[in-house]
Design a protein around this nucleic acid. Structure first.
Length: 302
DNA sequence: GACGCGTGGTG
DNA sequence: TCACCAAGCGT
């Protein structure tokens, strides 16, 4: 250890732990999202988190407001029919989420007396609630200190800590990586969990990162290494046109609009190819997104 | 662990 | 224009 004055770390922003810097940045840079308002109850947070799984914020916001106004508690949603929630889900995409969210509401009502649990393992036991969402609800909904790792967080850690351009696939060590950066204070740790996600969503983005706006750029391992390119295999982009996903979407579109069961013929315009149309209809039946009436017509499950 | 699952905005 | 992208989950 040197005794020279220059060896003594100077107090100042650049000496703050990374986690504290990110939390301070969040205070001035965070988006004003309704589910982040203080007093948002855990159920409302849970609904927002499920809707935000793979769906952008801008499309979630209006639907989230409608849902919370209509079904302000798990018990309220548990009393709704699948058809109602599928219609209310609208075009958020991946409508199985709507079904699972309703099933989660049923389970919360039955097993937890209508109270959204705060424990991660109890949350993970609910339909449609995985590693990310369980921790997000515990942290953002109940104010528990939790490591919360989504695709944004993995990307931030990959760059900031590991000096890599892109995140590796999710792994258990992700939780340890981010835990090591979290502030000591519990309230700030909760803030930190949402702040890292926000940093990844607004600054450390997947496309062209906005490093000039980054509060921790002076200690980013990726930047300090000269922005080395991603060396792993390129990730495959999912096609959409012509896939079963598109066909399922078209079929469900017809059934959402219809308020009584429709004849099979009414589904032909949705997709001309009979083989693929039939296959997709079957998969929708298997998923419980569609039911067939005794007279052979199709409808949303009431 | 790779794959399937919707939709619409964007550079 | 069109590939890419957006707070994952279940199998």
């Amino acid at each position: 250890m040197s005794s020279a004055p220059s060896a003594v770390p100077l107090p100042g922003p650049s000496d703050e732990p990374v986690g504290e810097v990110v939390v301070d940045w969040y205070a001035g840079a965070a988006r004003d999202l309704p589910w982040r308002e203080s007093g948002t109850d855990p159920w409302a947070v849970l609904v927002s988190e499920v809707m935000l799984q793979q769906t952008p914020v801008a499309r979630v916001e209006p639907v989230w407001r409608e849902w919370l106004a209509r079904w302000p508690t798990p018990a309220a949603m548990a009393a709704a029919s699948p058809a109602e929630v599928i219609r209310a889900w609208g075009k958020l995409g991946y409508p199985r989420r709507a079904l699972r969210l309703r099933e989660a509401a049923v389970a919360i009502t039955a097993r937890h007396a209508g109270v959204v649990p705060a424990e991660v393992d109890e949350l993970e036991a609910l339909p449609g609630i995985g590693t990310y969402t369980a921790r997000a609800v515990s942290c953002f909904g109940h104010g528990r200190r939790q490591a919360v790792v989504d695709t944004n967080v993995r990307r931030v850690v990959a760059r900031l800590v590991h000096g890599r351009a892109e995140a590796a696939p999710a792994r258990a060590a992700d939780l340890l990586d981010i835990t090591a950066l979290a502030p000591v204070d519990d309230e700030r740790a909760v803030r930190f969990s949402v702040a890292v996600m926000e940093l990844g969503a607004l600054v450390c983005v997947a496309g062209t990162p906005r490093c000039a706006a980054c509060p921790v750029r002076d200690r980013c391992a990726w930047r300090l290494a000269g922005y080395p390119a991603h060396d792993g295999p390129p990730k495959r982009v999912q096609r959409f046109a012509g896939t079963d996903r598109q066909v399922r979407g078209r079929l469900l579109d017809v059934l959402r609009a219809a308020h009584e069961p429709v004849d099979p013929d009414a589904l032909v315009p949705a997709w001309e190819d009979a083989v693929q149309r039939s296959r997709c209809l079957d998969s929708l039946l298997v998923d419980g997104l569609v039911v067939q009436t005794e007279d052979g017509r199709f409808a949303l499950p009431s």
